[in-house]
Design a protein around this nucleic acid. Structure first.
Lengths: 249, 249
DNA sequence: AGCCAAAATTAACCTGCATCATCACGATGG
DNA sequence: CCATCGTGATGATGCAGGTTAATTTTGGCT
């Protein structure tokens, strides 16, 4: 089962057994990637999309001086360039962070699904819009939060996504990011990220050592990052996220 | 024709006559809005979506102190909360900027389209992904550009979008934004936006007076904002964007 | 015409983060 | 075995943009 994590615990969009089977049967190939490799380049015409099974990938834009702004981090279960199906070309590059494996689904298979299975198509659509919702949270992070809050917000988000994918019990995870990757996520320099990481450690909120993140006080980290997980569309958050992050209903 | 601007000049996604007619027939109502009104609130369950016909709207997230970060500006022709169809609830608020008119399409109509017209469905999907591509450009703006470049980039983007919608010949437009709106777009304070606006005027790049934007030197403004319009997926950009913004093919 | 609130403008001061530089450490490789 | 490179750590310095506050201009209304 390569698709077991796809749309796992996503509100109103989890796959039926038949839908999952259909998606599995559309896989043409399972590919492995080394760490830190380019997977797809902006502007290329894509005829297949990539469902991440294991490892971490990212998407980014370059500025004129060659500096990158990461626009997404992808964890296992993410259909990371599904948006290339309607768009045909991407507006950004895709690369691995760690070594990774992914299932390849040709767009011709998605055409058949789009013709015959409107409900599954709606769920695929949902998955691309979830990425857009995460983009919006990142906009909030860059536009309104200071450096410490940006890092705290990102770590809370990643923790919640990994929990929802079944890849963390909620306190520690390794996602292969260096401090300079974190800088490219948060719109900061590596020097300042280093100071922020130290401060988070000194305040007893979390540690970040050689890509291993350990959350020491999730409640205070959540507050510090103004993190509200509603945008992740996780099904029944009461079951799997701490109560202080729940929207007051 | 309420849908004439929808997906106008969008690469590989312009509507056929039949598709346009189908969409028109799905309109249940045409609604008018006053300026500066809330249109939809985060978390509400939506059963219809809104195609903007006239005027400008925006989407935004609030921080704990009540400060807003705008995550999108919408111009006529944008299907502004189509993503509510797969998502069901929104993760952000929607409001008008100016007075506006919009066509309402119930999600039940979209269900019928999704069942019967996969190609039109793919184009609707495309339109939501175009918004996501714009989100990514906004992430680049906030993460990698300084204040002047952020404003320049935003003005270039808006100019290009209005041209593509047939609402500007490429030098002047009014979109009803105040300087503090611009601040909420660019992650700056209104005071600093005021300084930036003055500097852009003094450098002969553009003027921004009482919501009227006049571009004096589009080439230099484009360079200053590191603006590359590829992410807008405009069909055959050579025809309608200046040559210095064309990707070197 | 005259009133009022919203928007724009400007000044003075301050701070968060960038920039530049150096150093330590461990892994990798010839 | 030493050279090199990626990663992390830390100090010194400067400036872009934030903050606060006061004033002026604008435009919508009666």
């Amino acid at each position: 089962m390569f698709t077991e994590r796809f749309l796992r615990h996503k509100r109103g969009a989890t796959l039926s057994t038949a839908e999952r089977a259909r998606l599995e049967s559309g896989i043409s190939e399972v590919r492995t990637y080394k760490a830190r490799r380019l997977v797809a380049r902006a502007g290329e015409r894509l005829t297949e999309s990539t469902l991440l099974i294991d490892g971490f990938m990212c998407r980014y834009l370059d500025d004129r001086a060659g500096l990158r702004q990461l626009v997404a981090i992808h964890v296992p279960g993410d259909f990371l360039d599904l948006h290339a199906y309607p768009l045909q070309t991407l507006d950004h590059d895709v690369a691995t962070i760690t070594g990774a494996t992914a299932a390849i689904i040709p767009h011709s298979e998605l055409d058949i699904i789009a013709d015959a299975m409107p409900e599954l198509t709606r769920k695929l659509w949902f998955s691309t819009l979830l990425d857009a919702a995460i983009h919006r949270a990142w906009l909030f992070r860059l536009g309104r939060l200071d450096a410490i809050a940006r890092v705290a917000h990102f770590l809370c988000e990643t923790n919640a996504r990994l929990m929802s994918a079944g890849l963390s019990e909620g306190r520690r995870f390794a996602l292969g990011l260096t401090q300079s990757d974190l800088a490219e996520v948060c719109g900061l320099t590596t020097v300042h990220v280093n100071r922020v990481v130290r401060q988070l450690r000194e305040e007893g909120l979390c540690t970040f050592r050689s890509s291993l993140v350990e959350i020491l006080d999730l409640e205070r980290l959540t507050i510090r990052g103004q993190f509200n997980p509603a945008y992740l569309y996780i099904d029944d958050p009461a079951d799997r996220l701490p109560s202080f992050t729940r929207p007051k209903s």
